[in-house]
Simulated scan of single mutants.
Amino acid sequence: CPWKGERFPCHGCNLLSQCCSSYEFCVSCCLSPTRTVLEKVVKVRVAKPATAGTYKTVFDFCAGRCRHNSESVIHENAYHSKFHHCFSLTSNASGANLTQVETRLLGIDVIVGRQGDSCDAVCKSRGKLCVMNKLSLLNQCDVMQRYMSCNGSCLASAGADQPAEVVDDAPRDLYPGACLYTRTQSMLSCDGSHQYTRRLCPCA
């Protein structure tokens, strides 16, 4: 039979953020070969634990990703926007799509904190709360360099105060002026702080 109608329609979807207002069109849009590649999908874990399996097909990936998306939730009990069915792959620190990141940060105030302050303290000083699930979006060199000087240096580190910038008067062995990100997503925290860093915080 000849195919009738539009294949892989994306009605009600924001193609920059790859988020949609309905689950059905999210899955449909995601299934397009121009947006989702099988070779990448089969490397994605169904859940965070290391024991979790990976997706077997593009359909399984799309059906799963569109249903579950922690980035679309704010303060754990409300959706950030009506576009809360998302299928995008998580970007990494070296290849962030800045336009996509900016779209996901709509409604979020990105604030550079004072030296030694946690993001909880930074956001509270503005009458807001730290949005924990947005920290991973800021934990990327490309993004940090838009808000901080970084002195041309962005280094992988290990600490609950990342993403952050080391203050200029820090001891030399702490790389004054450098931006720091963590490769361990589980370490991202709203309450982390360090006496020689200024945090980059998502507040709402």
Rank of each mutant, 00 (worst) to 15 (best):
I111P: 01
L105G: 01
L16Y: 04
K4H: 10
R114H: 12
V44W: 03
S157E: 06
M148A: 05
K82A: 13
C119Q: 06
T54Q: 06
V41Y: 09
S22F: 01
L129G: 08
Y196F: 10
S149W: 08
R45G: 07
G152T: 08
G116Q: 07
R65I: 07
C26D: 01
N92I: 09
Y147D: 00
S186F: 09
N14G: 04
V44H: 08
G12F: 00
Q195C: 04
R199M: 01
M132A: 10
T57S: 10
C66W: 09
K48S: 12
A160S: 09
V112N: 00
L174F: 07
Y55G: 02
D142G: 14
T182C: 06
H84Q: 07
Y175Q: 15
C10D: 08
Q195H: 12
A121R: 13
P2D: 14
M144N: 05
Y181R: 05
T99I: 11
R183M: 15
V122A: 02
R126Q: 14
R45Q: 09
D142K: 13
N92E: 10
V122R: 06
G95A: 13
K4R: 13
I111V: 15
E71S: 14
S88K: 15
C30Q: 10
C130L: 03
R65Q: 12
R199S: 00
T57F: 00
Q185S: 15
C123Y: 02
G53N: 06
R7L: 14
S70Y: 13
C119R: 02
G64M: 06
Y55R: 04
Y55N: 03
C119S: 02
G177F: 06
D60C: 00
C150I: 03
E102Y: 12
G12S: 06
E76H: 12
A170Q: 05
R172A: 15
M132L: 15
P33S: 13
N151H: 13
T99N: 15
R7F: 05
H11R: 13
E165W: 04
L188F: 04
D191T: 09
A96F: 07
A170P: 01
S70F: 11
P9D: 01
G159P: 02
L31M: 14
N151R: 09
A178Y: 01
H68A: 11
A121V: 11
